[in-house]
Lab assay of single mutants.
Amino acid sequence: MATGGRRGAAAAPLLVAVAALLLGAAGHLYPGEVCPGMDIRNNLTRLHELENCSVIEGHLQILLMFKTRPEDFRDLSFPKLIMITDYLLLFRVYGLESLKDLFPNLTVIRGSRLFFNYALVIFEMVHLKELGLYNLMNITRGSVRIEKNNELCYLATIDWSRILDSVEDNYIVLNKDDNEECGDICPGTAKGKTNCPATVINGQFVERCWTHSHCQKVCPTICKSHGCTAEGLCCHSECLGNCSQPDDPTKCVACRNFYLDGRCVETCPPPYYHFQDWRCVNFSFCQDLHHKCKNSRRQGCHQYVIHNNKCIPECPSGYTMNSSNLLCTPCLGPCPKVCHLLEGEKTIDSVTSAQELRGCTVINGSLIINIRGGNNLAAELEANLGLIEEISGYLKIRRSYALVSLSFFRKLRLIRGETLEIGNYSFYALDNQNLRQLWDWSKHNLTITQGKLFFHYNPKLCLSEIHKMEEVSGTKGRQERNDIALKTNGDQASCENELLKFSYIRTSFDKI
């Protein structure tokens, strides 16, 4: 039985969820670079991206490699990797027998973001014989899940209580170790020597080791999670996991709180800001991140802002960003909400898709409305799209047979046209069989910064309504002859009103 693990408890099935942008060198404390989270699957090609990484700022997932063999891993080693800020997950990587050479110096898994409450997941690794993470000293947050690894031993010899604050939620089941077939031998045991430290858990006094050649490092209890030197002297209180010299914040392997210019500090002093819960960055760093993602459509890219001495992905609820200094300031009234469309555009074809934009005031991208039916549609669209004030790209209304009016965009005031449909149009209306009105132009103002209007096959939309939009939106004169079809717009509506004058002759039985 794995020490510190839980057996036999019912657990939810383990679901495996399925960018080499360097964020800056980590400095003297770390020998390499800070790398983003990685999802490495199918083959070993991307694994080489770990070569210079000291910190993975995010998670590391290595999974679904069915053609790899043990010899493929023999020359692979990433000794610079010290810390993973989120979680480490391995799933069905064939041929991998140990992690001792792959990650010989991995010391800390912070667990800032977890995989279903777990910071370390080893699942269905069919050839893994031992973990071998002999320098792993601290899992700051989260638990361990090690399950269905039929060859995995050296679990009962690990004292997880020396690595985690609590072992109650560890789930370590259905491994070879369960069948008591392992016969784990710690260093020196074969020669009758006791080389590794022994600890007591559940009444068992057991030597602690990761492999037959690597003991588990056990520091004096007084050192807590700070770690200790090879001689057993406690590291500085700002260290986490390990250090090369005692009581020196510049000799830590990793930091308990924050890293700044080669030393570990309790908090980031001005003019620095907390970033990702582990390091200090200056304003320029946060500003660069903001600008890199301002026009990016890459998933996970955030326009970072500053709030409460932190550089964070977005302002919290009730705050909006001051564009001059990136500071989050309290909103006066309802907060603006910028919604970034991942692929640059979004099609609204149902109430469900409209709900995804609920509360958005600025759309960074283009909207395509293609709704053919739905219950209580006008009210639903207004509830979900009615706060949109600005669209950076274009607005396209296409084959939306259920629409009679666009009044559900009740606050839309600006279409920038930074991206144009077919390279020309910022407003595009095609084949809307029941569209009769755009907006009530006596109450609604709309500016279209650039781009043209396109109207074709809107049989109940009168040309007068379209011409009014040209005047109000500032697009009059931009359109070419064929942009607004004269014969297919309003051709099934009563669009022309003329005053009919009647004269009559009164007659009676005795007068003409």
Rank of each mutant, 00 (worst) to 15 (best):
H28Q: 09
G32K: 05
E33K: 10
C35M: 00
P36I: 07
M38R: 04
R41S: 15
T45P: 14
L47M: 06
E49A: 07
C53G: 00
S54A: 05
V55R: 00
I56G: 00
I56N: 00
G58R: 00
G58E: 00
L64P: 03
F66N: 01
F66W: 14
R69F: 14
P70D: 14
E71H: 14
R74Q: 05
D75P: 06
L76T: 02
F78Q: 02
P79E: 08
K80N: 13
L81S: 00
M83A: 03
M83Y: 03
L88C: 01
F91L: 03
R92A: 09
V93R: 00
S98K: 03
L99Q: 00
K100Y: 07
D101E: 13
F103A: 01
T107H: 10
V108Y: 02
G111F: 00
S112K: 13
F115M: 04
L120N: 01
E124T: 01
H127L: 02
K129I: 07
L131M: 02
L131K: 00
G132M: 01
L133Y: 02
L136A: 02
M137G: 11
N138H: 11
I139H: 01
T140Y: 08
S143C: 04
V144G: 02
R145C: 09
E147L: 13
K148R: 15
N150E: 05
I158E: 04
L164A: 09
N170T: 07
N170Q: 05
Y171R: 01
N175S: 12
D177F: 12
C182P: 12
G183E: 13
G183F: 15
I185Y: 08
P187F: 09
G192W: 08
T194H: 14
P197S: 12
A198P: 12
T199C: 10
N202E: 09
G203N: 12
G203Y: 11
F205R: 02
E207T: 08
E207V: 08
R208Q: 15
C209L: 02
W210M: 11
H214G: 12
K217N: 15
I222A: 15
K224V: 07
H226F: 13
C228Y: 04
A230R: 01
S237R: 10
P246V: 11
P249D: 01
K251I: 15
C255F: 00
R256Q: 13
N257T: 09
Y259H: 07
P271N: 04
P271C: 07
Y273K: 06
Y273M: 14
Y273R: 07
W278T: 13
C280L: 01
N282E: 06
F283T: 08
S284M: 10
C286N: 01
D288W: 05
D288I: 05
H290R: 03
H290W: 08
H291R: 09
N295R: 12
N295A: 05
R297D: 11
R297A: 13
R298Q: 02
Q299N: 09
Q299P: 10
Y304M: 05
N308W: 14
N308D: 10
K310S: 09
K310N: 11
K310M: 06
P313V: 04
E314V: 05
N322M: 03
S323R: 03
S323Y: 14
S323E: 13
S324M: 11
L327R: 12
L327G: 02
C328Q: 02
P330N: 10
C331M: 06
